[in-house]
Design a protein around this nucleic acid. Sequence first.
DNA 1: TGCCGATATGACCATATGGTCAACTCTGTT
DNA 2: AACAGAGTTGACCATATGGTCATATCGGCA
Lengths: 228, 228
Amino acid sequence: MTSMNSPELGTRARNESVILEAAERVFASHGYRGASVQAIAEAAGLPKSNVLYYVGSKRKLYVALLERMMARWNAMLDDIGEDDDPGEVLEGFIRSKMRLTRQHPQGSRLFAAEVLQGAPFLQEYLHGELREWVRSRARVFERWAEKGLMDPVDPVWLIFLIWSATQHYADFEAQILSITDQGALGESDYRAITDFLCHVILKGCGVRSTSDVNSERHYPSIQGKETT
Amino acid sequence: MTSMNSPELGTRARNESVILEAAERVFASHGYRGASVQAIAEAAGLPKSNVLYYVGSKRKLYVALLERMMARWNAMLDDIGEDDDPGEVLEGFIRSKMRLTRQHPQGSRLFAAEVLQGAPFLQEYLHGELREWVRSRARVFERWAEKGLMDPVDPVWLIFLIWSATQHYADFEAQILSITDQGALGESDYRAITDFLCHVILKGCGVRSTSDVNSERHYPSIQGKETT
DNA sequence: TGCCGATATGACCATATGGTCAACTCTGTT
DNA sequence: AACAGAGTTGACCATATGGTCATATCGGCA
C-alpha cells in the first residue's frame, strides 16, 4: 500500500479518480440512460468488471458525480446581506459561476443533462437547499431595488439570467466553437466573456459596479479572427 | 384513403405526427443513445414494429426531428440591415426566440441534448448556415456600435447571451419549476420574462427600444407566489 | 516461506436493444 | 367477389446492456 505507483495516491484513490473523470465525460454527453458502463470503462482504460468493482453500480457512480458537482456548486455560494454593494455582489456571482463553468465544463454538462431529463436525481436538492438560496438572494435584491440601488427587476429572473448566460458556455460549447470557428475557448475568451456579461447585466439592471471606475473602453475583441 | 378517421389527415400523416411528437419528448429527455424505440413506441401508443414501419429507423427519426426543428428556427430568422433600428431588431430577436422556446420546448430540449453530445448530427448546419447568419448579424451590430447606436460590445457574445437566456427556459424548465415552486410556466410568466430580458439586454448594451416610451414601471412580479 | 486482504478480470446471465420478416387485416377499386 | 396496396403486428435475431461471480494476481507482512 505504501508503494509509489503514482504521485501520492493509493491504488483505490487513483483508479476511482480516473473512473470519475471518464464517467463525467460519458454521462455528460449521453445522459444517464445513454451512457454505458462499457463506454465508461473504455474511456477510463479499464475493464468493465474493474469499474464495477470500484463504483458498485452505474447508478451509484452517477449519484456520486452529481454529488461532487453539487458540492462544487455549494462551495461557490457565499452569503450576502442587504448592506453589501449590489455591483460587487452581482459581479462576484457572475465571476464565480463563470469560473465554475470554466473549471468543470463536464460537470456543468452533466448537470444540464440531468435537468434535461427532468432532474429525477436532483429534485430534492433543487427544491430544498437551492430554492432557499435563491429565495434569500431574491429578498436582498428586492431590498436593493426598494432603496433605489438597482432597477426593480424580478430577482428570480435575474438569477436565472446569470445562470443561463454562464452555463451556456459549457453546455453549448460545441455550438459556440462551430460558429466562432475555433478549436477551444481559451483563457482570454473566458475573460472577455466574463467582462462582457458583467457589463451588460450590471448596466442592464441599473447597477454600477464599484470597480467599474471609467465606464468606457472595455470588451476589446470583435467576433473571431475572420476564419483564418 | 378518403375515410374520416381523424380531422383531415390520412392514416400515414396522423401516425407519423403522433410518432414525431412522442419521439421528440423521448429524445429530448434522454438524448439519442438514451432513447429506445420501445420507449418511443409506448409514448406514441403504438407497437414498436409499427413505429419502425413508419419511420424506417431510429436514426432517420432523429434526423427528421432535428430537421423539423432547424426548419422552425430558420423560419424565425429574418434579415436585417445597418439602417434598421437596433432596439427594434434586438427586441424582435429576443421575442422571436422566446416564442420559439415557448411553442416548442421539446424541440428546444432536443436541440440542447444534441449539442451536449457535441452536435454530431448538426455540425454541418452549425458551421454553415447558422455561422453565416451569426456573422452577418455581427457585422451589422458592429456598424451600429461605430455609429454610436449601442455600446461597443462583442456582437457574437451578445447573440449567445440572448440565445442562452431564452433557451434556458426550455432546457432548465425542471430546475426553474422546482425552484419557483410552480407546476408550469404560464403565458404571463413568459410575458414577464420576455419583458425582463428585453429591458436588461437592451439597456445593458446601451440601446433604447423605440417602443420603450416610458422607461419606468415594467416587470411586475416579485418571485413566485409564496409557495401557496 | 506462507498468509491475507486488496485488486483485477474473463466467463457468464437475464434482459433490453435496433431492426427484419412473414403473416395478417383493412379499405377502396374493379 | 377478387384484387392490390397500405397498414399492423407478433415472432424472431444478433448484439449490447448492467451486473454477478469464481478465480487469479498482487503487495506487504509475519
